[in-house]
């Protein structure tokens, strides 16, 4: 599935699992789709498609939001939480902490929507859990 297909199919869905999904393509060297779930406007998911996988990434916070004195404690906490979080994992891109999920290119639209919704819910859950480590 490529980005255009995905954008069209998500727009066609009125809602999924009770959530309204809104998508907006972002221009650039590689095509990215910004998708917001329901009321979670502040935590959009960015979807890109490569040869092997569909990557869904939600930005959590930047390095300078992290309280420096408890940084390593937070990192350890994130490693511990990585497995219990369903379908998503923590990662870092540049100076930004992210939560992401990767799917096979052969995934159906329902799998992708489920992934994006789960990712958004996990993002809210994670920031709530890690709030004490943030400025």
């Amino acid at each position: 599935m490529n980005i255009e297909d995905l954008a069209v199919r998500i727009s066609d869905l009125a809602s999924f699992d009770g959530y309204q999904l809104e998508c907006q393509p972002i221009p650039g060297e590689i095509e990215v789709l910004q998708i917001t779930v329901g009321d979670f406007d502040e935590l959009p998911t960015y979807v890109s498609v490569t040869d092997t996988q569909i990557l869904c990434v939600t930005y959590l916070f930047t390095e300078d939001e992290v309280k420096s004195e408890s940084r390593s404690e937070m990192l350890e906490e994130m490693l511990e939480l990585n497995i219990p979080i369903p379908l998503s994992s923590f990662a870092k891109i540049g100076d930004r902490y992210v939560i992401f999920g990767a799917l096979s290119n052969a995934s159906g639209i329902e799998d992708i929507c489920l992934e994006i919704i789960t990712l958004t819910e996990n993002a809210v859950e994670s920031i709530t859990a890690l709030e004490d480590f943030l400025n």
Binding site: I26, P27, G28, E29, L55, I93
Partner: peptide
């Protein structure tokens, strides 16, 4: 994948 993530990230930041 690394390249793709970097490029996607650049596109998002530019946006």
């Amino acid at each position: 994948t690394t390249e793709s993530v970097q490029k996607a990230s650049a596109a998002i930041t530019d946006n």
